[in-house]
Nucleic acid binder design. Structure first.
Lengths: 211, 211
DNA sequence: CAGAATGGATAGTGGCGCTTTCCGCTATCT
DNA sequence: AGATAGCGGAAAGCGCCACTATCCATTCTG
């Protein structure tokens, strides 16, 4: 397969493919002569993965590069890959808002109560604390009363996710499903939450009008 | 309060505040003379809201402007505000991936089975279909088996969210909590899901090592 | 009354994700 | 065999975004 065909198969413009190769997201084609190269199904799959992570997951090129490094790390155990993927997609830390200390204690307490085996330096711990401190700073601190319910829901979802990931026997498919499940799963979950909001709001506040 | 004090109170640089005023995110101060203006607590709150939506929710300036328009719309019923907020924060529609038609039918079926009162043109419907089609295109189409579990979790979360929003008696606080709950709630939910993933993975794949 | 701060306008900056252009070479069609 | 289209690689350019810097005349502050 030459680059034009790869482009047609994936809907990605040729200069963009060249750009991804330059940026280290996509391996270069196999050179058959100084200025000809062949691409294969692996390139098609990789390119689709890149676009999925960017378009649906909203990842930057840099984040995709890190995620793919985790995917390509040979024979890492699942648990490590998950950690690496989470590191890679963690949003850039904004400045700590007021009240972050108290929010950190809230998060720590939640993790302890739940018995979650999470390292304190996990980026999601801080991300959660920042979100809670922001809510507090906006005068919506009572949001914390919803936390346990959120955590219940997430435990259930996470168990199902892990069972789903575990069904992939081949290691490289498994690793990829960890990444895809994390990134695209977020998009699925937030879309579903919005739909459920609309429904709950329709039941609560409207006779039947939909939005 | 003059602009320097507003800047110190919120941690937002003066030129940035001026920029937000220019962009229509923040109302101008009350002029006391041709080149002096006063700002008040409303400006502090609004500025914090803007930064929360951008930093935690990841919204663009344009999205924040639309969200705030919904917040400021006088006396709109909650249901409408929710719809407007969702419109405003809907991610820009990427090109439809292959298999979008089938994914749309899957989503439609889910909504019908659930009895959700959602308009078919709701942007989250399409966002969900795009996410599912992407999973399919990456060879992870069996993710759909998790959908019902995700939907269960979201129904529970959404009910709690609406109850929480409904506790705000004053209308403007209520409207703001709809917006904040939607945007910042997403961040909370995805952080919790990641933590739950790490825990589930630790239990499943590791003796006790944390990530 | 000196020095700092202000409102308002205009222009500039740095990062990101491409896109354009150019070159000499290669594959393919007829 | 010649015409045409496509290729790989490098370099420069572009459009958007979220600020940031500079300037000015005016006004507040010590």
């Amino acid at each position: 397969m030459r680059i034009g065909e790869l482009s047609r198969a994936t809907g990605v413009a040729i200069p963009t493919i060249k750009y991804y190769v330059r940026e280290g997201l996509l391996p270069a084609g196999q050179l058959t002569s100084p200025n000809q190269a062949r691409y294969d199904d692996g390139h098609v799959r990789r390119l689709r993965l890149i676009r999925g992570l960017m378009d649906v997951g909203g990842l930057s090129v840099a984040a995709v590069r890190e995620v793919l490094a985790a995917v390509d790390a040979p024979e890492e155990p699942v648990h490590k890959v998950l950690g690496a993927a989470q590191e890679a997609i963690a949003p850039p830390q904004a400045a700590a808002p007021d009240g972050i200390e108290e929010a950190r204690r809230t998060v720590e307490g939640l993790i302890r109560r739940r018995g979650w085996r999470v390292a304190p330096q996990n980026p999601s711990v801080e991300a959660l604390a920042v979100a809670l401190a922001t809510l507090q700073g906006l005068g919506h601190g009572d949001f914390e009363e919803l936390l346990e319910g959120y955590a219940d829901a997430c435990e259930r979802v996470a168990d199902a996710d892990l069972a789903w990931v575990g069904r992939n026997a081949e290691v490289d498919r498994l690793v990829e499903s960890v990444v895809v499940g994390t990134v695209v799963g977020d998009a699925v979950l937030s879309a579903l939450r919005r739909l459920a909001h609309v429904d709950a709001s329709a039941r609560r506040y409207e006779g039947g009008e939909t939005v």
